[in-house]
């Protein structure tokens, strides 16, 4: 289990992680979702003690990471698959991890086959690896100590579709055996399929968290019109809060029937009207993080 409590990290005047609190439970896959630069990697680096927190705390299995006597045996970590000496072979990198953790020598070959790296690939230098192979090697380094918790930063990056399915099954298995998995991603579809719980972060702050079902059920109604701004105003006039995302979709908590009535009364022709729960995580993600996106927008022109 991973417990993050009121974690904050500031760099000078810039707040990279702002009062973040969440828990990744054992037996579940927790997806840590956010656009680039949202603070996912900084939060993960603080968890494993590579970056000091400004305030708040992060504990894993009830202890601070630095207090774990042999961290690799309890927590498998992959922060950046490319952060390896390009001149070492994959097998050598795994051997260093195996020796540091004090594991039997056989663990290297076992883990290589678990991540489907062939003997020939393992003996190649990492400079000649594709990003997908580096990810597999990084996951191997995280898994070799048979840990109880996995912390993976963008592990699906660079994997081909078959590789992504493989990783999904692997993490599912790991969680089903009682392990804790925290993985970050901006690959929404991946995390939607794999995660049980979601933590969504934007600009260093948590904007939503809960089980995937909860978050999707709270989706409300999605409507489109030729002039989304007009629809937005019509809803606002009736006291219905709505938000308009970059692609012109108007979302609200209200029922589709109510939205249809409002549009009719205002004489707005709808081009689309449906319950938003089928809309998927992507729209929720875009909506939730809209305010913190680089392209800044929406909340309808509050002029």
């Amino acid at each position: 289990m991973i417990t993050i409590d009121a974690l904050t990290k500031t760099y000078g005047g810039f707040t990279a992680v702002d009062d973040v609190t969440f828990t990744a439970e054992a037996g579940r896959v927790t997806g840590f979702l956010g656009p680039n630069g949202a603070g996912k990697s900084t939060t993960m680096r603080i968890m494993v003690g590579l970056t000091p927190a400004s305030s708040g705390s992060a504990t894993i299995l009830g202890r601070h990471f630095a207090e774990l006597p042999n961290p690799g045996r309890e927590v498998g970590v992959l922060l950046d698959a490319s952060a390896q000496h390009a001149g070492r072979t994959g097998r050598e990198i795994l051997t260093i991890a195996q020796r540091t953790m004090g594991l039997p020598r056989g663990a290297v070959a076992e883990t290589l086959s678990r991540v489907s790296l062939t003997d020939e690939e393992a003996d190649r230098r990492v400079r000649n690896y594709s990003l997908g192979m580096r990810q597999r090697l990084g996951i191997a380094t995280a898994l070799i100590g048979d840990p109880e918790v996995l912390i993976l930063d963008e592990p699906a990056n660079g994997l081909d579709p078959a590789g992504i399915r493989w990783m999904r099954d692997l993490l599912r298995d790991f969680a089903d055996q009682g392990g804790t998995v925290l993985l970050s991603s901006h690959l929404l579809h991946e995390i939607e399929v794999i995660a049980d719980d979601l933590v969504v972060i934007g600009n260093g702050r948590i904007v939503a968290q809960g089980s995937k079902q909860e978050l999707l059920a709270a989706a409300g109604t999605l409507a489109r019109a030729e002039q989304p701004g007009a629809l937005h105003r019509a809803l606002a006039d009736k006291g219905i809060t709505a938000s308009t995302s970059a692609d012109g979709a108007v979302r609200t908590e209200a029922d589709p029937a109510v939205v249809g009535q409002v549009a009719l009364a205002a004489g707005i022709a709808l081009t689309e009207l449906r319950p938003a729960d089928g809309a998927g995580l992507e729209e929720m993600f875009l909506e939730l993080t809209a305010a913190s996106q680089r392209e800044g927008n929406t909340e309808g022109a509050a002029a």
Partner: peptide, 12 residues
């Protein structure tokens, strides 16, 4: 070489 990411995670 950024290997410290792994080294200092395995040995804090």
């Amino acid at each position: 070489q950024r290997t410290g990411l792994t080294t200092f995670t395995l040995v804090p």
